[in-house]
Structures are given as C-alpha cells and as structure tokens.
C-alpha cells in the first residue's frame, strides 16, 4: 500500500510517533535485532519496547546504546507471553497504538505506517497479510503445507477466515490491546488473538505486508505443536 505523504498525513504521522509503541519479543537474537532497531529508529519511532524473553545473554547488554524500553522476563516463557508483557507495558505507558513486530528482521519497518494508518482510520486491529501483497514470494512448501492449512486451523478455532493466519505483524488500538488477552504462552497466540477479535467484536482489516524470508521460520513440527496447544486450550480450560 503506497503511503501518500501529503501535508496533513505528514503532521498526523508526527503525532503518531509519540503514541505508537512497537513491541518486539526477543529470545537469543542479537544481530538481527540490532538491524531491526536501526531501521525503526531511522523512521523516528520513539517508543520501542523490547521484551527479552529470558535470553541466555541478556538483550540489555547487546543493545545498551539504543534508546529503547527493555522489559526482561527472568524465565523463558514464549513469544505469546512476551507479546502480552510488552503490550501491557505499552498500555501502562500511554500507548494509543500497539504494534507487534518481529525481532528477526522478517517485517519491514516502513510498513508499520500502513498498519498505523488503518488504526487511525478507526479500525481496532490491523493484521498484516503476506498473501494480499502483490510482489510477495512465499516458498511453495511453506505456503501449501503450513500457511494454507494454518488458515483453516485458525478458522476452526477462532471462527474468522483470514487470508494469512500466522502473520505476527499487527497493530492494535488502545481499546483492542486492552481487550485482547493472550493466554497462550508459546506460538499458538496467533490464532488466539484472532479468536479474541471475534469474541470482542473488534473491527479489523487485513493489510498487505511483505515478509522477508531469511530461513524457514515455523516448521511443520512447530505447526503441530501449535495445533496441540489450541486443542488443549479448547477442551481443558
């Protein structure tokens, strides 16, 4: 989505900068995280919340010189828990818009503005979708064995059918961020967030984003684990 930098948009965007909190869960990432921070700070985002999810080498030491908020889990809990902690921290510090962003450099900092724009238009949630993006290349095996089945798993558990079920790039309004409670500590939180959107009747929109593939990401056994976590939650809680 081309972001037109008209004068009003530009002013609006400057206003956002102070209210947008970018939450990045990090677990044993250093080089990629540094690059991500450089990209974000270049666009002048003022509130970047790194959640160190019990990394063996504390993130705070690696990125000591960056002007960011660091929240540290003393134990490794999982990405879901890290996002929850980061979101809660952001809300406590006056965030109007909370953006979930990845530490491994697969999301593009420049596209945050597209998601934020959607929230500014009055939506509660903006969800990134790689399949809506015209130029996106997705590895075939990943597409047909993981991402496409995931859409149906997601639909089964949440009741919403999205074009891209497991995209971690999203923006939440303050209202939505307060409503959406992530109980799943590990990776099943993607589906959980969608289920919460449906439950609380939040207004959402999918936004095309480009995912930069460095490696395979979530593999097949990881996918099975996610399904097991979802089944456990559905039937035992």
């Amino acid at each position: 989505m081309a972001y037109e930098l008209t004068k009003t948009n530009f002013i609006r965007r400057l206003l956002y900068m102070d209210q947008v909190f970018i939450v990045i869960p990090a677990y044993n990432e250093s080089d990629s995280l540094k690059q991500v921070l450089v990209d974000l700070l270049a666009i002048n985002y003022r509130h970047i919340v790194i959640v160190d999810d019990g990394s063996s080498c504390p993130v705070s030491e690696i990125i000591r010189d960056f002007p960011v908020h660091i929240v540290t889990h003393s134990l490794n809990l999982g990405q879901g828990a890290a996002l929850r902690t980061g979101t809660e921290y952001a809300l406590q510090n006056g965030a109007e818009i909370v953006v979930h962003f990845d530490a491994d450099g697969q999301h593009r900092a420049a596209e945050i503005a597209d998601l934020v724009q959607v929230i500014a238009e009055g939506y509660d949630v903006a969800l990134g979708s790689r399949f809506l993006h015209a130029r996106q290349h997705v590895p075939k095996t990943k597409k047909y064995f993981i991402l496409k089945p995931a859409i149906y798993v997601n639909w089964l558990f949440s009741g919403l059918k999205l074009s891209d079920a497991h995209n971690g790039f999203r923006a939440l309004s303050r209202h939505a961020a307060g409503k959406i409670i992530i109980e799943q500590n590990r990776m099943a939180h993607g589906t959980e967030i969608v289920a919460e959107i449906k439950k609380h009747n939040l207004k959402f929109k999918e936004v095309p984003v480009e995912i930069i593939y460095h490696e395979y990401g979530q593999n097949f056994s990881g996918g099975i684990k996610v399904v097991m976590d979802l089944i456990k939650q559905k039937f035992f809680n």
């Binding site: 002007p67 908020h69 929240v71 540290t72 003393s74 809990l77 929850r84 902690t85 921290y89 406590q92």
Partner: peptide, 30 residues
C-alpha cells in the same frame, strides 16, 4: 491441571516482575 495452573501462576509472576522492573528504570536514554 495442577501443572497447568502452576505454569500460569509462574508466567503471571515473571511478567509482573518484568514490568515492575522496567517501570522503575523506564526512561529511555534519549
């Protein structure tokens, strides 16, 4: 169930401590 419950409690505690500590030194150096 017990284990699951305990897991949740531990998570809650870890998250709470993390946020409290972060709030104490909340000012980014910028």
């Amino acid at each position: 169930h017990r284990l699951e419950e305990q897991d949740k409690r531990i998570s809650h505690l870890v998250r709470k401590i993390a946020i409290n500590n972060a709030q104490k030194n909340a000012n980014p150096s910028r």
